[in-house]
Write a protein that binds this DNA or RNA. Structure first.
Lengths: 198, 198
DNA sequence: TTGGCCATGTAATATGTTACATGATTCC
DNA sequence: GGAATCATGTAACATATTACATGGCCAA
């Protein structure tokens, strides 16, 4: 069974979420969408289909709950076997992060733009990163409040994960600011920059 | 035409590479594989298919060159229209980087592991990041030597792109080191860590 | 009364990956 | 003799995304 990278991530993310508590496909999809690190594109299909597959493999099981005025729920839980498999994966050799950053590709050929166009491109990117960082900080603040009191090892690790996300955007913001400052220092947006050696 | 994110990246990466100089599909695929930011999975199919598509759209054209003892080459060049389209894209609003980091997902549920298992997981990850950073530094050094003398705006920007990649791994390395130090400071790998408030 | 939330799912399409075919050449 | 490089491509499969269907409830 040749599971691709992101399918695998989804599989184990689902097992992980179900190790916290039983949940329906709908719930799980929302949790994934809300998560900063489980980046996903509003796509419930994969969640539903993956759950069915996981059930066939005996890693999860479900119970149907009827509801008044609302569609019935399939509430999934982790099986013993599922927990075992989840642990095996968590212990396995971690992969390096894979980053897709279209902006760096734009920048690679941004030499084709004129000074003003380049200025605006860099400005826009800084703005976006700044906003995203602010959003993540706000999210972290709310999450921090929610987990006050819990001081288990899990809570400690989850705090560190938040820190990772924040430091990623912080690092990116510093980089783009340095870049813009260096360009300014080299005498505005002249076509030739001699500052490269520095 | 609903181009997904990464297809779009491939399209414009190809146009960009061809704006540097004409090249065959084979050459382009190698350049993409070698690139730190055009992360791809040794997959020539997409390159060949995308080139054919780009040609149908009039953004690139090709000439066939016969070679002695070697298969014929299809050397692609950027058309006027292709250059225009590339510039339009470069000027367009940049997207934020999208990062897939399976390790953070492992870590989210690493509370399920015992102390020693967690220790080994963190150690392995630090090692991997350290090695990758070293590799990227080595790559940057070689690239820096190659581009000595060129002090155009393009060269300046490409230097900054390298800096971005290095600072990404540097940041990640700092984070995992801090994490491990904090755990050590909290009295080794005890099951309960009270250091969370700090 | 338009739209969003709840909840699951089908169908169609788009994208990504793997395996394999060809065939001469060069390096170990 | 086996593997890697050069060079393009076909076919098959795996995975991801979009659009749509259902249908009652609730809020602006």
């Amino acid at each position: 069974m040749p599971f691709g990278v992101s399918v695998m991530i989804l599989r184990y993310a689902l097992l992980g979420l179900l190790s916290d508590e039983p949940a329906s496909g709908y719930d799980l999809k929302k949790k994934i969408t809300d998560s900063s690190i489980l980046y996903w594109s509003g796509n419930n299909q994969q969640v539903y289909r993956t759950l069915i597959q996981l059930e066939q493999e005996g890693l999860v099981s479900h119970q149907v709950f009827a509801q008044e005025h609302l569609p019935a729920k399939k509430v999934y839980s982790l099986t013993e076997q599922g927990l075992t498999e989840l642990k095996v994966w968590i212990r396995s050799t971690p992969e390096l992060p894979a980053t897709r950053t279209p902006f760096l590709i734009q920048l690679t050929w941004a030499g084709l733009l004129n000074d003003e166009e380049l200025y605006r491109l860099l400005e826009k990117y800084e703005g976006e990163v700044r906003e995203e960082l602010a959003m993540q900080q706000e999210k972290a603040r709310r999450l921090g409040l929610a987990s006050q009191g819990t001081s288990s090892r899990s809570a400690f690790l989850r705090g560190k994960i938040t820190e990772n996300v924040l430091s990623f955007y912080g690092n990116e913001l510093n980089w783009i600011r340095r870049l813009r400052r260096d360009i300014d220092a080299a005498g505005g947006y002249q076509d030739e920059l001699r500052s490269q050696a520095s």
